[in-house]
Design a protein around this nucleic acid. Structure first.
Lengths: 153, 153
DNA sequence: GGCGATCAAATCGCACACGATTGAAACCGC
DNA sequence: GCGGTTTCAATCGTGTGCGATTTGATCGCC
């Protein structure tokens, strides 16, 4: 009936799933901030690097697909990462519309430092691996539902 | 070991809990956008209204505590809601440092329209109420862990 | 081969988030 | 009471997100 349990007459924002997701996201951002300072990148920039460590040499669009972001967000972010020397942006030859994003040596090397960062965050989460994976899966399903609904509208 | 399942040699951002939370948050934002257009507010502004429907006449600090936001984010947001006539901001008489935020008639009336909005979103989530509540609780616990870790650092 | 539709990235404008700083009010120990 | 500390909100600068639009390249249909 509502985003909160349906019967709540008195509204408590803590019972809203959307708020739980919203505030957990901010909390992640805050936990990542400190360890990422050593790398010199922001949390969204770090996510872009993670995506590229998984699949390098992709177009802006493909990257946006992986991250659920559009070029209006990615273009300036990628320009900052390029200015810092983590990656390069080059027009594709086969299709001049596309811009191919590729890690530099520095960008690949950062993967090593990232281990420490992720160890930090894993400790902060403090969840055993199975529950960790289950929660991740449930959120992925939630996102899929929401995206389906947003596309239908 | 990492934010992803520890053994993954090939990195997949989809396996990161932080990313699952991050992208689910964006998905919520996108689902809320359309229904909230009729109300004329953004998703964060809506969350402020939800918080005030639960507890009206509170200071900026108290509101920030409920929403995990600071005055640097809330002040401009509250000014916009005030300009739109949803609430008032007045210096407290007992303590001149505080600014008390209170809903106007329009702000209270919006609670009626919000029912439709939340029905929309609940359908988009498509989860039975018990799982809904459980997931909310798990995320609340996750946030608490992350905030504890961030405070310790 | 030519032209409208489509597609990819960039650009623009606005609204969050948040670290850092500022300024004013209240508190506190003496 | 009075000066230092703490608290509260506001301000500033930077970096996302995202709707809307623009620019340029490709595709499709003839």
């Amino acid at each position: 009936m509502t985003d909160a349990p349906p019967e709540t007459a008195d509204i408590r924002i803590e019972d809203f799933l959307c708020f739980a997701v919203y505030s957990a996201g901010h909390a992640f951002n805050r936990v990542y901030r400190r360890p990422l300072e050593r790398l010199g990148v922001t949390y969204p920039q770090f996510l872009v690097l993670v995506a590229l460590w998984g699949e390098d040499g992709v177009s802006v669009g493909r990257l946006g697909e992986a991250l659920s972001l559009d070029s209006n967000t990615l273009t300036p972010l990628l320009k900052r990462l390029e200015a810092m020397g983590f990656l390069t942006r080059r027009r594709s030859h086969e299709d001049e519309r596309r811009v191919v994003v590729a890690l530099t040596d520095k960008g690949r090397a950062a993967k090593g430092e990232a281990g420490d960062v992720m160890r930090c965050v894993f400790d902060a989460v403090g969840l055993p691996a199975p529950q960790f994976a289950r929660l991740t899966g449930e959120l992925r399903a939630l996102r899929a539902s929401l995206e389906r609904a947003a596309a239908a509208a």
